Amino acid sequence: MILPAVLAIRRFFPDAEFSLYSGKELRARRVTARQVFENSGYFDRFVFFPKSKKISAFFQALALFMSIPRLKLMKFDTLVYLVPSNRSVQQIERDRKIFKLAGIHHFIGMDGFYQQADAPRHEADRLLARLAHDGVEIPAVGKAKFQLNLSEQEKRAADDWLVSQLQNEKNRLFVAFAPGSNMQSKRWGIANFSAIGKKLIEKYDIIPVIFGATEDADIGRLLIKSWKRGINAAGSLSVRQAAVALSRCSFFIGNDTGTMHLAAAMHVRCVAIFSARDEEEKWYPYGTGHIVFREHIACQGCMRDSCDHKTCLTRISPLRVFRRVEKEFQDILQSR
């Protein structure tokens, strides 16, 4: 989500050296910033600090303090603060003190945290608005660009892998599916993805392609078994190669995940299934032409990572999703 802000900052400081300082999850298989940005040309160096939901706020702050000597040796001039918009005032001030101790005294994006009433709805636009507060030129709301700068080598590697998975399916309609999520509360359910996949196969003869992390590969195998066809890319491609493979698909169906944002960044139209755990629109696929399903329920905004009932997701039926896809994506479905 920080990519448009990175582009804006690169234009603002055209001759600067850029380092990306970010957290790296302990014992978690989450995508790191390096996996997204390496070889993109946006950053000259990657610096990590340990991060985990399983450790207390005190020990998390301690991990940040322990990184001060290393940051001080690097002699940074400016910090561009691109943390999520749900940061508390206490967290912001703690971070300011830490980075000042590391010898940094010029901050961009730290004083521009908006009150909820004034903030743009989408997280990417909120990050940009904070930069604008400090004089950085930004695009209009909803007009930000996501440019991954994929190399020819990355494109060739992804295309070669796809070709190796194909039999006599080169002229078929490929549809991306991302049924996984790090959060149980965001998962629509394997049976739902199986049902909509079967309908698209029966009526439009699609070839489903499963995307996700290594831990999603088993889900992919179950779905392909239920569909009796498909390609399982979960865990088989790097993040940047997956972006290439997503761009070869006609559209995307999946949960609220990084894979969904990757598809949107590659200008692939998304059918996104959202729980109601967070603010509406904040994490929607960026851009136009997408279909988003999200229910309004009493407990929306709960911010739970897991949920016993998942009412907001169980109300979204595969048939309802299929009918909407069939109606709004008819131009794509009839293109083969």
Score class of each variant (00 low, 15 high):
W188L: 06
W188P: 01
I104C: 05
F37R: 04
R34Q: 14
H105L: 08
S335K: 15
E123C: 00
L166R: 15
R130Y: 04
E154Y: 07
D278P: 02
V163F: 13
H296I: 12
I108D: 00
K199P: 01
T314E: 08
E281K: 09
F99A: 04
G180F: 00
I2V: 15
L166G: 07
K199Q: 13
A243F: 05
R30Y: 09
I68K: 10
E17V: 14
R187N: 11
P318R: 02
F76L: 06
Q330W: 10
K51F: 07
Q167E: 12
L319W: 09
R94I: 13
H309Q: 15
N171Q: 13
H133L: 03
P208L: 06
K155V: 13
M260N: 00
A213Q: 05
S236H: 09
Q153R: 15
L26R: 15
A57K: 15
K228H: 15
P139D: 08
Q116C: 04
K225F: 01
K155F: 07
L313V: 03
D218A: 08
R27P: 04
D159P: 05
S275L: 00
K143F: 08
K54V: 10
R304M: 07
D125K: 07
T214L: 13
R156Y: 12
I316H: 04
D15H: 15
L166Y: 10
G189E: 03
I68F: 01
W283F: 07
F18T: 09
C312A: 07
T314K: 15
Q60K: 14
A63R: 15
A117L: 10
M110G: 11
Q116H: 12
G220Q: 03
R130M: 07
V325F: 02
I108L: 13
Q35Y: 06
F174N: 01
V292K: 10
F65L: 15
A233P: 04
Q115F: 11
P208T: 11
R121V: 11
I190K: 12
A16F: 09
F329H: 09
S335Q: 15
F49A: 04
Y81K: 03
M260A: 02
I297E: 00
E93S: 14
S238H: 06
V36F: 14
S151Q: 10
S181T: 00
I291E: 01
Q241L: 01
E215Y: 07
A178N: 04
M183D: 01
I206Q: 03
H290I: 02
C307R: 02
A8K: 09
G180Q: 03
K143L: 05
F12E: 12
K97E: 04
G301Y: 00
A157E: 14
A119E: 03
Q184K: 11
E295R: 13
L223G: 00
R315N: 15
G287L: 10
R11C: 08
S185L: 00
G254P: 01
S185R: 00
R240A: 02
N171W: 06
D308G: 13
F13M: 06
A276T: 02
L71M: 10
A102W: 02
G180S: 07
F65P: 01
A217D: 05
F59Q: 11
